[in-house]
Design a protein around this nucleic acid. Structure first.
Lengths: 227, 227
DNA sequence: CCTACCGATCGGTAGG
DNA sequence: CCTACCGATCGGTAGG
């Protein structure tokens, strides 16, 4: 989290080869557990299921993680962070709010497609999560909705969208990405990039977006080379 | 379901007073279990929790139900039926598709508000449901989306809505009601009837509804007295 | 890094 | 003798 160190000093590589191996094994366990938690649910997935899927034993798993709940929290946290920080925009970003909104919604769609499994744990499996962890997730969700509502309001004020109740609009947008897991599975007929664009269009439609900003046909994207 | 019997013969009341008492007790158990299953999840709710909430004992519960899974399935089934049959319209209904769509979406909103707890079990707790039961739910969900897409297409053909991909629009509509449980709790500042109207407006907006049918300002509603 | 096994707790049901 | 229920305990399995 606190990765702000003085540059120009490539000394002391934080990560040895042994660390990489360890990290790979951790990720293998996380990937196997994520698939099972998503399909069967947290409580219906046993630690024996996870280790069987990997062809290892239970003590192997407990060497890399503190327990079943530890694995679940790590999966849930990283996915929730990726999805719920999508609407964050730099304070110095002077572009029209409509552009920033569209870029944020696109990030939101991409994150929810990328983390389509673990991204659902926070709201599907609340009962399986410890109360303090739930509180941290709720706090992050509040920030997400605040940032989204602020962007919607700014975009409405500048006239690039037309929407009614901001809270309901915000929730409707969150619902479309949050409910995607019930019908969308990556690997289907539609490529992930195309699906992200399609979802972004739907989200912009819910926001009441009318035409791509009449003033100047701005081509938004990941263009952050020069300001 | 098959309640079509010859009238004018009030003989043989199907339901004795003892049956009513039994039915009341069943409903009490179902209500207590529903609240716990919704808040803690199926696996995190024990039979001991349910009976404790009612001040009764486990044999009492097992007299009225075959088990924990039996209770869960009954809750899930009745709620899912109520929500997923909302888009069904009579074959003889000759009104414009836009009106039938709006009426169906309003039923959908009302059903999801009414069954806001057990209505989520089908997609939140798939892992806790037996495979054959899941199959029956999936079949019913398929019918729901087919009926919704048919209505959307008819409404688009008659010009009362403008929407893009019918499948994505249908899923976006289902998402808004399916994800309501994450932010809406009945008993809040907004009355249930008002919330149903508000949700219906959002759903119609997602469908691309433009003004209440320009041709004739039809006032749709539950007015089925005379054709 | 595995085999073998524990303390705790589950859903369900016996006898009375 | 039946029903509707209680206190006590069952077999089986979870995480560890």
């Amino acid at each position: 989290m606190t990765a702000s160190s003085t540059p120009r000093l490539p000394r002391k590589p934080r990560r040895s080869m042994a660390d990489d191996v360890r990290e790979n094994k951790r990720e293998e366990i996380l990937a196997a557990a994520e698939a099972l938690f998503f399909e069967r649910g947290y409580a219906q997935t046993t630690v024996a299921d996870i280790v069987a899927a990997l062809g290892v034993t239970k003590p192997y798993l407990y060497y890399y993680f503190n327990g079943k709940d530890d694995i679940f929290e790590q999966l849930c946290w990283r996915a929730s962070v990726a999805c719920l920080t999508s609407m964050h925009t730099d304070a110095g970003d002077a572009r029209p709010a409509g552009d920033r909104l569209q870029e944020g919604l696109h990030r939101l769609a991409v994150a929810n497609i990328r983390y389509f499994r673990a991204g659902t744990f926070a709201y599907r499996e609340t009962g399986a999560l410890a109360a303090p962890f739930q509180a941290r997730l709720r706090a992050m969700a509040r920030v997400f909705h605040r940032e989204l509502r602020d962007l919607l309001q700014q975009a409405r004020d500048e006239g690039s969208i037309e929407c009614g109740n901001l809270m309901l609009t915000s929730h409707a947008i969150g619902s479309v990405v949050g409910f995607m897991y019930t019908w969308y599975k990556p690997g289907g007929p539609i490529a992930q990039d195309d699906m992200a664009d399609e979802i972004t269009r739907i989200l912009m439609n819910i926001a009441g977006f009318r035409q791509p900003t009449p003033k100047r046909r701005a081509r938004t994207g990941a263009n952050k080379d020069n300001p």
